[in-house]
């Protein structure tokens, strides 16, 4: 029988020990990534169990859809497919031409040869982070820093990966910045997250820079993380204060960051001369 009074260490020693240990963990958080990977793999069943009820509910609502709804949906998707494949035909031609011209200039373009559809696991995360958990991990070759997009635009990048799932930091997170280019005039900009899924900011834009409301901003490909040309945000508000050098520019992410369910993981690669059609792997 042990009593309350048989403590091996006094509390003060324990408190100092955990504070020091935690400090060491925080300071070495970058080099602890592999350990973290194993830990989160170990606890990933919890995430699967936690997200199971909602996914079951989703499946139920999918099965009880009426025949008419399904037919209407089917029709709409067919029309959409037709219009998309028409645009794709033109695009492929342009892409080949572009890469040939680029090759002549000696500046090969970064393309994405491989894509993978992933599903958002609905689990709660850090209250201060805008991040989501995907159901693809190391076993699908997901890597840290990998760009993630949805059907509208860029969503974010992978910041943590384990065997079965991965964590994506959204572009609107307070600690995220993304190199951008204005589609209208090729001005390079930096899009800064502000912790709000509906609004981001452009940093260090001088007052005389040519930015207008409604401008479409795409990834610039600088920084070697996001491939070039994916839409990110549109400009929604410009504010010039009297004595400041920079103007405050608000932008709105194109991707619907608060209601994403499926996303696309990209594997950017340098284009080779025999550019084959990108293959989309289904989940």
């Amino acid at each position: 029988m042990k009593t309350i009074f048989t403590r091996r260490f006094p509390a003060s020693v324990k408190i100092i020990a955990i504070v020091v240990l935690s400090l060491l963990l925080v300071l070495s958080s970058d080099s602890l990534a592999p350990a973290r990977q194993y830990l989160s793999t170990f606890f990933s069943p919890l995430q699967v169990i936690a997200s199971a009820p909602l996914e079951a509910l989703d499946n139920v609502s999918e099965t009880v859809k009426s025949r008419e709804t399904l037919m209407a949906e089917n029709q709409k998707l067919r029309q959409l497919e037709l219009s998309i494949s028409d645009r794709l035909l033109k695009l492929e031609h342009l892409e080949q031409e572009n890469s040939r011209l680029r090759a002549m200039l000696g500046s090969p373009v970064v393309t994405t040869q491989r894509k993978l559809i992933a599903r958002i696991q609905s689990v709660d995360t850090d209250p201060f982070r805008l991040q989501v958990v995907l159901n693809k991990g190391i076993k699908d070759d997901v890597f840290i820093g990998q760009p993630v997009v949805d059907e509208h635009g860029v969503v974010g990048q992978v910041v943590e990966v384990n065997e079965f799932s991965s964590r994506v930091l959204l572009i609107a997170d307070n600690s995220h910045a993304i190199p951008l280019r204005n589609q209208r005039n090729d001005v390079r900009l930096i899009g800064l997250g502000r912790g709000d899924v509906h609004q981001m900011e452009l940093q260090y834009v001088t007052k005389n820079t040519d930015v207008k409301i409604g401008d479409m901003l795409v990834t610039s490909g600088l920084g070697d993380r996001f491939p070039e040309g994916y839409p990110v945000a549109s400009v929604t508000g410009i504010e010039n204060r009297g004595n400041e050098i920079y103007s405050t520019i608000r932008i709105r992410p194109i991707a619907q960051l608060d209601r994403i369910r499926y996303v696309l993981l990209l594997w950017p690669e340098l284009a080779t001369s025999d550019a084959s059609a990108p293959e989309v792997l289904s989940q």
């Binding site: 400090l23 958080s29 606890f43 995360t125 982070r129 910041v159 964590r167």
Partner: peptide, 10 residues
């Protein structure tokens, strides 16, 4: 920390 994706130790 692991489940939330917070820096380990917070």
């Amino acid at each position: 920390d692991v489940l939330w994706g917070t820096t380990l130790g917070f």
